[in-house]
């Protein structure tokens, strides 16, 4: 039994959508800043998966190259984000994102 490239791509995309949704849920439900960051990583990862799947479907390596740039952005984002986390923790002694609420009316 051989599954067509298109059909298998659909499967991969389904996995990508599921992982992305889990990431969204993590951002929306968790209060811990670090876990929110990890959820963001998961969402980026899901996007990477979709890139790979489409690249394979089209028979080019452009999708794979896009993944490298995503990785770069993710690495930069994590570095800056974790820096901010450290500073926030210094100030608040807590990483509860609901306590970062000074910017309201």
């Amino acid at each position: 039994m051989v599954i067509s490239v298109a059909a298998s791509t659909n499967l991969v995309l389904a996995l990508s959508a599921i992982l992305f949704s889990i990431g969204v849920l993590g951002v929306l439900l968790r209060r811990h800043v670090l876990i929110i960051y990890m959820s963001i990583e998961l969402m980026l990862n899901a996007a990477n998966l979709a890139f790979i799947a489409f690249g394979r479907l089209q028979g080019t390596i452009d999708g794979q190259i896009a993944v490298f740039f995503t990785l770069t952005v993710a690495a930069a984002e994590v570095a800056v984000g974790l820096g901010i986390v450290v500073v926030v923790y210094r100030e608040l002694k807590s990483l509860d994102i609901d306590r970062l609420n000074l910017l309201k009316f």
Binding site: V27, L28, L29, I97, D98, N101, L102, L103, K104
Partner: peptide, 13 residues
């Protein structure tokens, strides 16, 4: 202002 509670997760939603 009720919809601007200052909570990041609310904005994210």
């Amino acid at each position: 202002t009720t919809y601007q509670p200052g909570l990041v997760r609310s904005y994210a939603l």
